[in-house]
C-alpha cells in the first residue's frame, strides 16, 4: 500500500513538469513543423488547414512551397550563411578573450576568485537590452569612441562603426562573454597543478606545458563555452537589429520580419525549422556535455 502511494507520488512529481513541457514546448514545435507545410492565405489564421473537406471526403493538404521559396530567393540563403559567419566569428572572439580571463581567475588567489567571478557575472544580471543599447552611444558617429579619437587627433572624420559587422561582433562578444568564461573557469579551476609541475620537472617550458597539458585538458570547457555562445548567436535578434547592418539581415530577424511584417506564417515556420535543423547537432552535443557534467558532480 505504502509502495503504491510512493509510486503515485513519484509519478506526480515527474508527470507535472513533463505535461507542462509537452503542452508548452513540444507541441508548439509540432505546430510550427506542421504550419511550415501550409500555404499562406488571407484568412484567420493566415494559412491553409492541414485537412480539408473536398467532395465530402477529407484530404491531406501538404505544401512544400514555403521551403522551395526559401531555396529560390537568395535573401534567405545569404541570411543563413551570414548568421553562421557572425556566430562563428563572435564565438572565436569570445574564446580568445574569455580563455585568458578564465585562466587568470582560476589561477588567482582563493580570496579574490569569488570577487572576480562576481565581476564577470554581474553585468549578466543587468538588462541585456540596455547593455546592447549602451554600445549605440559608444559606437555611433557622434558617439564616445569617435569623439575620443577625433579629440586625440587620430582621425579627422567620424568612422562608421555602428550598423557594421564589427558592431554586431562587439555586441555579441560583449553580451555572451560570461557564458564563455563560466564553463571555462569551472573546467580550468579543477586542473591538477601537479601535472604542470611534473611537466616542468620533465623539462617542458611553460608555453609547451600549456599547449600540451592545460589546453587539451580544457577541451570540454572550450566546447561547452563555445556552444553556449554559438547556438543562441545564430538566432540572435536584438543585437543585429540595434547595432547591425540594414542591407544584410541575420536569420532571426528574417523570421521575425516574415511573421510580423509580411504575415507569412508558413515561411516564418519554415525558416524556424531550417534554423533548428542547422542547430540540432550543436544542441545535442551541448546536452551530452551537460549530462556528463551533472554525472561528474555525482
Amino acid at each position: 500500500m505504502a509502495r503504491l502511494t510512493q509510486a503515485a507520488g513519484r509519478r506526480l512529481v515527474a508527470g507535472v513538469p513533463i505535461l507542462w513541457l509537452l503542452l508548452l514546448f513540444l507541441i508548439p514545435f509540432i505546430i510550427v513543423f506542421r504550419i511550415s507545410f501550409s500555404e499562406v492565405r488571407l484568412a484567420i489564421p493566415p494559412y491553409t488547414p492541414l485537412i480539408s473537406w473536398r467532395h465530402g471526403a477529407p484530404s491531406l493538404e501538404l505544401y512544400g512551397s514555403a521551403y522551395s521559396f526559401l531555396f529560390t530567393d537568395p535573401l534567405y540563403i545569404s541570411s543563413y550563411l551570414y548568421s553562421l559567419k557572425v556566430a562563428a566569428v563572435s564565438t572565436l572572439c569570445c574564446l580568445c578573450i574569455g580563455y585568458p580571463m578564465a585562466y587568470a581567475i582560476a589561477r588567482s588567489g582563493a580570496a579574490s576568485r569569488p570577487v572576480l567571478l562576481m565581476l564577470v557575472v554581474l553585468p549578466f544580471w543587468t538588462s541585456f537590452l540596455l547593455r546592447v543599447y549602451a554600445w549605440i552611444g559608444l559606437l555611433k558617429n557622434t558617439g564616445v569612441i569617435n569623439n575620443a579619437l577625433m579629440y586625440l587627433g587620430v582621425i579627422h572624420h567620424p568612422v562608421a562603426l555602428l550598423q557594421t559587422d564589427f558592431a554586431v561582433y562587439i555586441g555579441i562578444v560583449y553580451s555572451y562573454l560570461p557564458f564563455m568564461i563560466l564553463p571555462l573557469y569551472a573546467n580550468l579551476e579543477k586542473h591538477d597543478m601537479a601535472l604542470l609541475e611534473a611537466a616542468a620537472d620533465l623539462g617542458a617550458r611553460p608555453l609547451r606545458a600549456f599547449l600540451r597539458i592545460t589546453l587539451p585538458q580544457s577541451f570540454a570547457g572550450i566546447l561547452a563555452g563555445s556552444l553556449l555562445v554559438f547556438i543562441p548567436a545564430v538566432g540572435e535578434y536584438i543585437i543585429p537589429t540595434l547595432l547591425g547592418r540594414t542591407d544584410q539581415l541575420m536569420i532571426g530577424r528574417v523570421l521575425s520580419d516574415e511573421f510580423f511584417e509580411n504575415r507569412d506564417w508558413p515561411v516564418a515556420s519554415a525558416v524556424a525549422i531550417l534554423i533548428l535543423l542547422l542547430l540540432v547537432m550543436p544542441i545535442m552535443l551541448f546536452q551530452r556535455l551537460e549530462r556528463r557534467q551533472l554525472e561528474a558532480v555525482k
Binding site: I35, I231, G235, E236, Y237, G252, L255, A268, A272, F286
Partner: peptide
Amino acid sequence: VMPEVITGLSLLL
C-alpha cells in the same frame, strides 16, 4: 540554448 525567436514563434502559434 534554443534561439528565442523560435521559442517565441512556436508559443504564439
